[in-house]
């Protein structure tokens, strides 16, 4: 087995393979960044809607609760299939990466909205009452009192979520998106040893994920103590 690895290694780590893996890593990173970026914005929006009290927004609140609860309770693989089969007839010719990106955003919005919501709710009730008696409007209270106080509760679990998320994108390989996992499969199909192929891919994921998970741990320590 060892001989095989040693024998294949020079060819495996050749220029073309490295570029190929690099591009795949780029797609993994793209899905993660777009997913978390969109997820954070939409998640924030959803979390804020859930904090409102007005009766007019009641149906909207109900809708987002159902959305969040549902998408947190189905496997990412199933989301991928649903989006695939829903988008194809609606917008024919959508790229596979596009479909995967939409799925990723749906998932991250649901999870990040919960992270943000618990951050918003961590701000003591008294701060809200204080703002209310000073005649703050809902938006003023959110932007001047609640959000500035909740980011330190939101950031550590959000970073931890992104770490989970990088790994979840590996399922997009099933659609045929050439991200890291699919690249690994292709390399192994081309005849490289699975240990080499998947080992290299694991290493790539590790390089993406490890610094971020250290950062998440650092944030948690740093923000909790103060």
């Amino acid at each position: 087995m060892f001989e095989r690895l040693v024998q294949e290694a020079p060819q495996f780590f050749g220029y073309h393979n490295l570029v190929f893996i690099g591009q795949a890593m780029g797609r993994t990173l793209w899905m993660t960044l777009i997913g978390c970026g969109v997820g954070f914005v939409c998640g924030l929006f959803i979390a804020i809607i859930r904090q409102t009290q007005t009766r007019i927004l009641m149906p909207v609140r109900l809708l987002v609760i159902v959305y969040v609860e549902f998408f947190r309770r189905i496997p990412f693989l199933v989301i991928l299939f649903i989006v695939l089969f829903a988008i194809e007839p609606l917008i024919p010719g959508t790229s596979l990466l596009g479909i995967a990106t939409v799925s990723v955003c749906l998932l991250s919005t649901a999870f990040l909205s919960e992270v943000i919501r618990s951050g918003l709710e961590s701000v003591p009730r008294q701060q809200i009452e204080g703002a209310a008696t000073l005649n703050f409007s809902f938006i003023q209270m959110m932007s001047m009192v609640i959000l500035p106080q909740s980011w330190r509760v939101i950031l550590p679990p959000a970073a931890a979520f992104i770490v989970m998320f990088i790994k979840d994108t590996s399922l997009a390989s099933q659609l045929g998106v050439i991200e890291l996992t699919f690249a690994g499969k292709m390399l192994v199909n081309r005849g490289f040893s699975p240990i080499l192929g998947f080992g290299a891919i694991l290493l790539c994921y590790f390089m993406l994920s490890y610094p971020l998970s250290r950062f998440a741990a650092y944030l948690e320590k740093r923000l909790e103590s103060s």
Binding site: Q126, Q127, E129, G130, A131, A132, T133, L134, N135, M144, V145, Q149
Partner: peptide, 15 residues
Amino acid sequence: RNRMAIVFQQYNLFQ
């Protein structure tokens, strides 16, 4: 609330 103000036991200053 423009004419009336309250001070709470726990101060409730914006942190």
